[in-house]
């Protein structure tokens, strides 16, 4: 058994950490709430090749695995980067038989978004606000087209959420239900990976503060009430990492396990990030409730992500149905 990242993946994660830390930040996420740009932005992500990690080399991508992409996505999540690699991974699955479009995904010449819900008026969909081309499921067929995006007032501006009505559509594949479902599972894994990074960062922020801040003559991290909260949040993050790695690995190496692993990871991610972000605010006390502090930016990400691509209730139900049907073996 070797349930660990390989040296290349560790290097890729290190490179992604440097890239994302240099090009995005919670401060940028705060500025985005007041009309600033989402960082690092579509162009920068295309430039460094992150939009094409899982696009085949023949279509101009890196031909990597979903695990290769997930370790990069985790680093993006840590600094609340946008656009999300969820879209890149999901679109790469949907465009597997369309190398021309996949090439546009990888080189960034088109900004894709994948629509959840009906294409005549979609649910709020990730990165739809800045997209130029939309992929959707229309009466069982995979379609691509242009559309009109209507963003709501953002709770987390880095997610680029908008409802979309397609104004043109071209059928890419009939009977695309199974492909669509697999792409959505892959998307759930990447969202869980970004949540892993965000949760890890939120816990670290809170731990660092608990080591410095004093109250009643002691550092607050010495109080068991505070310490145990932080430990519970950390244990959640440590466990989420295991589910994210398993699910990302399964996407390529054990596709039969992907539905169970993806739903387990997404359900856990929703709750782990929420707990990490809420713990981060609580441990900081009053300063953690201010606009200028970063805690609320992780909290915003948590409150939005937990509901995207199916909430915990939906995924727990899926896990139970799969387990009852024999998916545990």
């Amino acid at each position: 058994m070797n349930f660990d990242l390989g040296p290349d993946q560790r290097d890729a994660a290190g490179g992604a950490r440097d890239f994302y830390r240099g090009s995005a930040s919670p401060a940028a996420a705060r500025a985005a709430l007041e009309g600033g740009p989402v960082e690092p932005g579509h162009e920068a992500l295309a430039g460094i090749g992150y939009l094409g990690i899982t696009v085949p080399e023949s279509a101009g991508g890196a031909g990597g695995s979903l695990l290769d992409l997930a370790v990069v996505a985790e680093q993006g999540g840590a600094v609340l980067a946008g656009p999300s690699l969820v879209t890149a991974a999901r679109a790469a699955v949907l465009l597997a038989e369309h190398p021309d479009l996949a090439a546009q995904l990888a080189d960034g010449s088109a900004a894709f978004a994948v629509l959840d819900g009906p294409v005549t008026g979609s649910a709020p969909s990730i990165d739809a606000a800045g997209a130029t081309l939309f992929l959707g499921l229309d009466d069982g067929a995979l379609v691509v087209g242009e559309g009109e995006a209507t963003p709501g007032r953002p709770l987390d501006a880095t997610r680029g959420l908008a409802g979309v009505r397609l104004t043109s559509r071209r059928v890419l594949a009939e009977d695309a239900g199974a492909l669509w479902a697999r792409a959505r599972q892959v998307a759930a894994v990447v969202l869980a990976a970004e949540d892993l990074g965000a949760a890890d960062a939120a816990v670290q922020l809170a731990v660092d503060y608990a080591k410095e801040r004093e109250a009643f003559g002691r550092r607050i991290g010495s109080y068991q009430a505070v310490k145990h909260m932080l430990v519970d949040a950390w244990v959640g993050v440590d466990q989420l990492r295991s589910l994210v790695w398993w699910a990302a690995w399964a996407a390529d190496a054990a596709p039969d396990e992907l539905p169970l692993a993806a739903s387990a990871a997404k359900a856990h991610a929703a709750e782990v990030l929420e707990r990490a972000a809420e713990t981060c605010v609580q441990v900081h006390g009053g300063i953690g409730y201010t606009w200028e502090h970063d805690a609320h930016l992780y909290w915003r990400r948590a409150k939005v992500d937990r509901l995207l691509l199916g909430d915990a209730a939906e995924h727990l139900d899926a896990v139970a149905r799969l387990a009852v049907a024999g998916a545990l073996g």
């Binding site: 058994m1 349930f3 440590d238 466990q239 989420l240 990492r241 295991s242 589910l243 790695w245 398993w246 387990a264 359900a267 856990h268 209730a313 995924h315 727990l316 139900d317 899926a318 896990v319 139970a320 149905r321 387990a323 009852v324 545990l328």
Partner: peptide
Amino acid sequence: RQAVGRAVVAALATRYTGY
């Protein structure tokens, strides 16, 4: 099913962390 799903996720998360 919610209760079963929650238990399965917790058990798998612990199992894979053990791995």
